[in-house]
Amino acid sequence: MTNARRLQIAIPWLVGVGLFAVWELACRVFEIPPFVLPRPSAVFATMYDYRGPLLEHSLHTLFTTIIGFVLAVAGGTAIGLAVGASSFVYVGLYPVLIAFNSIPKVALVPVIVIWFGIGTIPAVITACSIAFFPIAVNIATGLATIEPEMRDVLRSLGANRWEILTKVGLPRSTPYLFASLKIAITLSFIGSVISETVASNIGIGYLMLSASSRFEVPLVFAGLIIVGAMGIGMYAVCVVFERRMTRWAFRSQDLIS
């Protein structure tokens, strides 16, 4: 491993540690009261004290988020394929999709609660509804940008629409899909945590809300940090998948490194 490579791996950690150090220092120097902004040392101490409930609630949130995310991938892919493959569906569906995406999902949660009650289901639905849009758009873009010559080669061989979709459309849009997954997974966390905050009695969002109502601000921050950490973790998983599945799209980078 070269020094440059080692540095590249180390930098994110250094930046993270540095950020906490600045935060800690600022709290001490400016004597910020802990119920406004607790010191990271206090936050981590609280994290340790509450490790049981934190683990339980964050695992629940992770679980909810992943289910919502998987549903978003399935639904977003299906809608993206339909929109990208047929101009009729595109014209008909696109305005609706944009309208739906413009609705703040937090406004939807009460409605979902009326339909399904509070708890896990609204969180899953919110995560899914917020994450499917970038997936659908990216897949549709992948399909729309197929080289016309490639399509012509297939059509003149006698390929039908289905064959063109499976032999060119799908592989062509996988890099777009994986790029969108990285956005979608972080959006899923936003969706599930929002929903848990508004309408749940379990999950990290619920934990943070109840902590803040008891003015246990360090616990709120512990929850925030955990959500962020889970986001990074899932993002990394998506990156690994992306590298595996779409190596051909990264060829130039492979050549350099």
Partner: peptide, 16 residues
């Protein structure tokens, strides 16, 4: 028409 062979100026091979 079906089964025609075609080749263009850019090779349009599938990178995957």
């Amino acid at each position: 028409i079906r089964g025609v062979g075609m080749a263009f100026q850019n090779p349009t091979l599938m990178p995957w």
